[in-house]
Design a protein around this nucleic acid. Structure first.
Length: 488
RNA sequence: GUCCCCAUCGUCUAGCGGUUAGGACGUCGGCCCUUCAAGCCGAAGAUCGCGGGUUCGAAUCCCGCUGGGGGCGCCA
């Protein structure tokens, strides 16, 4: 078997869509699993909607996800260029070949005529062959020479019969060629249409497998016709089921996040999003849910891709994200936290973050089981970073100002007890537990006021560990300040 | 309208002729406990969309129906 070559071919009309991201992941995984080549090709033939910025955005999002490719824009390769707008000569060449072999013909119909015909057909009228198809060579040439605008259409062979699309995921799908109209290959402005450009590129770039969205399945028989007209064997197809929103409907802005960037901004880790997306439509077995890119690259097969469309489940994504945060380790945590710290003003730049590194790494074990989204981290640890803190109003009401609970006494006594205890988690815990006994109070009535005083909230990371990470003076000051507000 | 695709707990899925239909997220309950989490234990939750076949036996194979999705662009 010849070497596997696959590609991800986004059109830069927007950011990297979540569905596109998964397509890219599967292509990547298949290439890595088979020792094949993964190609990135930019389909920018639509000048109206394609932008340079989007190309950068897509490439950056792919890198962020941890994807790498063997050939593509910037890095080159043996089958470049990898932007369709730079490959126009190859399409022109292909068109000449098709003209010579008589597989195409010029069509002079206007867009209006076409639209009217299309409407008639969709309303139930019989699908008539394009009138230009029967124009004589001479007549057609005369009109071309006269400068009449025309497109080039593919001539569907009359006796083509059934077109079978071999798809690894869906099996064989059969289409009747008689129902297929002569699609436009080259527009009147000379540019190739999508269906023509893809086939030319996939042929010239020697693609062996086409892994793409389900939405292309119905277009595939048309493309097969182009392969045949060009005289090339068709590659193997794998059409991925669509990804829907949580409500099972098509993904749109209404459902929130449609682009990879948005997920990044919401605080998802690239490893987690990768893992989740990989799992959306593919499973290594019935058990495994957490795996790395490397593991997927070993286990991936197209045969195990699911046929049914899947709905996004943010709860599961979030759970996967929390699993990764829990296990990522202190160093990686600080690295990914850096931009958030800078944005929140805790550091001016990367260097500033480095100055805080050891402290942040010490904080990690207190929050790694609590942070589900990276966006939650900074607010959660602010009380360990700021000199002064603001007490949560609700917590003050429910814990410090609650009469009959002895909050004020607990705070005053705690300040005293912490004055000379060993400043270790054990020392602090011993001192405060001793205080509970001395006051004959349930731990809850001693610890909660202290928590509010020190952490600013009745809900917080572990208390003794938090205190240990703060300076003794700061803790005392917070306890005294809170005692002022508290009642017994 | 027409062609194509799809159909297992709420969600993602395992299953590929014989299983008590398995797992994960979520949900609910319990343990732990100074809060929130995490962790551990347990439970509920799927007459495998419906109806016909084939077969000793069907979630698995065949046909029909229904429901959902997609294509039918000088968009990709």
């Amino acid at each position: 078997m010849s070497e596997v070559r696959v590609r991800f071919a986004p059109s830069p009309t927007g950011k990297l869509h979540i569905g596109g991201a998964r397509t890219a992941i599967y292509n990547w995984a298949f290439a890595r699993a088979t020792g094949g080549t993964f190609v990135l090709r930019i389909e920018d033939t639509d000048p109206e909607r394609s932008t340079k910025e989007n190309i950068d955005l897509i490439i950056r999002a792919m890198r962020w996800l941890g994807l790498d490719w063997d050939e593509g824009p910037h890095i080159g390769g043996d089958y470049g260029p990898y932007m369709q707008t730079e490959r126009f000569d190859t399409y022109a060449e292909a068109l000449e070949q098709l003209k010579a072999s008589g597989n195409v013909y010029p069509c002079f119909c206007t867009s209006e005529e076409l639209a009217a015909r299309r409407e008639a057909v969709q309303a139930g009228a019989a699908n008539e062959p394009d009138p230009c198809r029967s124009l004589s060579h001479e007549e057609a040439q005369k009109r071309i020479d006269a400068g009449e605008p025309h497109v080039w259409r593919l001539k569907v062979p009359e006796d083509r019969g059934t077109i079978v699309v071999h798809d690894i995921i869906h099996g064989d799908a059969e289409f009747d060629a008689a129902l297929m109209d002569d699609m436009i290959l080259v527009r009147s402005d000379g540019t190739p249409t999508y269906n023509f450009a893809v086939v030319c590129d996939d042929v010239n770039m020697k693609m062996t497998h086409i892994i793409r969205g389900d939405d292309h399945l119905s277009n595939t028989p048309r493309q097969v016709l182009v392969y045949e007209a060009l005289g090339y064997p068709t590659p193997t197809f794998a059409h991925l089921p669509m990804i829907c929103g949580p409500d099972g409907k098509k993904l749109s802005k209404r459902h929130g996040a449609a682009s990879v960037e948005e997920y990044r901004d919401m605080g998802y880790l690239p490893d987690a999003l990768f893992n989740y997306l990989a799992l959306l439509g593919w499973a290594p077995d019935g058990e495994t849910t957490l795996f790395t890119r490397e593991q997927m690259a070993k286990l991936f097969t197209l045969e195990r891709i699911s046929k049914n469309p899947s709905s996004l489940d943010y709860d599961k994504l979030e759970w996967i994200n929390s699993q990764y945060i829990q296990q990522m380790g202190a160093a990686a945590f600080v690295d990914t936290l850096a931009p958030y710290l800078i944005e929140a003003g805790y550091a001016a730049d990367e260097t500033g973050v480095e100055a805080l590194r050891s402290r942040l790494e010490a904080i990690y074990p207190l929050v790694n089981e609590r942070v589900k989204l990276m966006t939650e981290a900074v607010p959660m640890i602010a009380y360990l970073l700021d000199d002064s803190i603001e007490l949560d109003e609700k917590s003050v009401e429910k814990v410090l100002r609650k009469e009959g609970k002895g909050a004020k006494t607990a705070l005053v006594e705690a300040a005293a007890v912490l004055e000379d205890c060993p400043w270790t988690v054990e020392g602090i815990e011993a001192a405060l537990r001793g205080l509970c006994e001395k006051l004959e109070a349930k731990p809850k009535f001693v610890f909660q006021p202290i928590r509010v005083a020190v952490c600013g909230n009745m809900v917080s990371p572990p208390l003794f560990e938090s205190i240990e990470l703060l300076d003794r003076g700061v803790v005392e000051q917070r306890l005294r300040a809170a005692a002022e507000l508290a009642v017994d």
